[in-house]
């Protein structure tokens, strides 16, 4: 079967398309999610700590260990611009993160960002999953995370095919492990 190269490839088209506010991939690769990161410091309407917490929550909501932080940062970055234009959105984010941190303080005596185990953070998210903040974040992420063409190869998905002549000569029927009958 024709397998595909799953290494990250940053196409210009995908880069331009998915970045509401441009976040250079090289600047993020390998960094950890913290308020000190450049992308968190660069946020204008959302405080760096809240921005970093949003990204951490995004990863905890849709955890893919083979996907780098950059894609979660990109998925969440447009929320800063939106908060800058929409006070209600900004308030929802601020209050949502404050609630998450308060719950984390109660349970673990630390802010959400510093809760070490994913399972503990997920339990905190379960506690707020009925809130508008959580529902909005999840519903937004399911598009803003998965609609980034650069991550598609990591799932073994090849995206647009018409320009390559479809799959007629590229393995539409190349499965080779089925029982023959």
């Amino acid at each position: 079967m024709r397998e595909i190269d799953r290494r990250t490839q940053f196409s210009r088209r995908g880069f331009l398309r998915t970045t509401g506010a441009a976040v250079p991939a090289a600047a993020i690769a390998g960094t950890s999610i913290s308020a000190g990161a450049a992308w968190a410091q660069d946020a204008k309407a959302i405080a760096p700590h809240a921005m970093a917490t949003l990204v951490k929550a995004a990863r905890d909501i849709f955890p893919h260990d083979h996907i780098g932080d950059v894609f979660y940062v990109r998925a969440v970055t447009p929320w800063d611009a939106k908060a800058g234009k929409d006070d209600a959105h900004k308030a929802m984010v601020t209050e949502g993160i404050a609630r998450l941190d308060a719950d984390a303080q109660d349970a673990h005596a630390s802010p959400y960002l510093s809760v070490a185990w994913e399972s503990d953070r997920v339990a905190l998210l379960r506690g707020i999953e009925h809130t508008k903040f959580f529902k909005t974040l999840r519903a937004d992420l399911v598009v803003s995370l998965y609609n980034q063409p650069e991550i598609w190869p990591k799932f073994g998905y090849e995206g647009s095919s018409a320009e390559y002549g479809g799959y007629l000569a590229r393995g539409f029927d190349d499965i080779n492990w089925l029982p023959t009958a």
């Binding site: 849709f62 955890p63 893919h64 998210l125 799932f155």
Partner: peptide, 14 residues
């Protein structure tokens, strides 16, 4: 959301 969902997504190519 969570790992039940994302691990299914991780199985996409199969």
């Amino acid at each position: 959301w969570g790992r039940s969902f994302t691990s299914a997504m991780d199985g996409y190519s199969n």
